[in-house]
């Protein structure tokens, strides 16, 4: 344990500090948004957004390297594409009806292909693994500011529209009948989800995002009696997973993203076995 603390305080190893701090701060966003994703059952939408983000990352790299737009970073590309895919998906769920899942599947893999083609056409070696599976070495001081900012935005939006978001998730049709503009609210929720996913990708990568977004909330759902409580428990659970995962990966010299996800998955299965997840029927 002392080794870990020493490493955390070591001025030559800022990445571990940044990684942990980002993870802890991000847990707030993950816990809140993850709860909505779980109770609204839109994890497949979150999955599509996260995979589309590779198009933004690839596009960003390409523009930066080939087109010479040096101020444009892959992360900016990721944010733009994440928001764009949120807007498209909101339209898809509104108009596509029966075909919704096929269209989402097309976006899901289409986005990834575009991203990979951009990466392939960008000269020089670039390892997409760090985006696909996460890499805390990528985390910078700037990310910490970004995460803190997103936490504030999410806390504010959810604090203001809590009742409406709750109604949207519980009974969208009834919310609409009561004069709530559910389409806009759904879009807002998807955009916040998209921004949260961009953050998550730093830590666990595109492919494993869904697990860290939904598993803490799913575990919390087994114990919470209100959405507020579910968010709080999910946040704490998520922070524990990230801390434990980073610690274990440091000691065992394993990729941090995968260790975090493995801990989350194990804990979820345990909570299903012992807890009263699935509404007490688990």
């Amino acid at each position: 344990m002392t080794e870990l603390f020493a490493a955390l305080l070591d001025p030559d190893l800022p990445f571990l500090r940044y990684g942990l701090l980002t993870g802890l701060l991000a847990s707030i966003s993950f816990g809140i948004i993850g709860t909505f994703v779980v109770v609204r059952r839109i994890s497949y939408l979150a999955g599509a957004i996260s995979h589309c983000i590779l198009a933004g990352i690839g596009g960003g790299l390409y523009l930066q390297t080939v087109a010479g737009i040096s101020w444009f970073t892959p992360m900016q590309g990721a944010v733009i594409v994440a928001l764009l895919s949120a807007v498209i998906l909101a339209q898809v769920s509104r108009h596509a009806g029966q075909r919704e899942d096929s269209i989402i599947g097309a976006l899901w893999s289409g986005g990834m292909s575009i991203g990979y083609l951009f990466i392939a056409k960008t000269p020089g070696y670039f390892d997409p693994n760090s985006y696909l599976f996460g890499n805390i070495l990528l985390i910078t001081k700037q990310d910490i500011v970004f995460v803190a900012g997103l936490d504030i935005v999410i806390l504010a939006v959810v604090g203001i529209f809590y009742n409406k978001l709750l109604a949207l998730c519980f009974d969208e049709e009834y919310a609409l009948l009561r004069g709530v503009r559910t389409q806009w609210l759904h879009l807002l929720l998807l955009c916040l989800t998209a921004l949260t996913i961009v953050l998550l990708i730093r830590i666990v990568g595109i492919i494993m995002v869904i697990a860290l977004l939904t598993l803490p909330a799913a575990i919390a759902g087994g114990f919470a009696s209100s959405i507020r409580q579910m968010m709080l428990i999910a946040t704490i659970v998520c922070a524990v997973f990230i801390t434990a995962g980073l610690g274990a990966s440091f000691y065992l010299d394993l990729p941090s993203g995968s260790v975090i996800i493995l801990i989350a998955t194990g804990a979820y299965l345990l909570s299903l076995a012992f807890g009263r997840s699935m509404g007490g029927k688990g």
Partner: peptide, 13 residues
């Protein structure tokens, strides 16, 4: 069947 919400919260909608 697993949505954590109280009866009062439902009615408040």
């Amino acid at each position: 069947a697993c949505f954590p919400i109280s009866a009062l919260e439902v009615v408040c909608m």
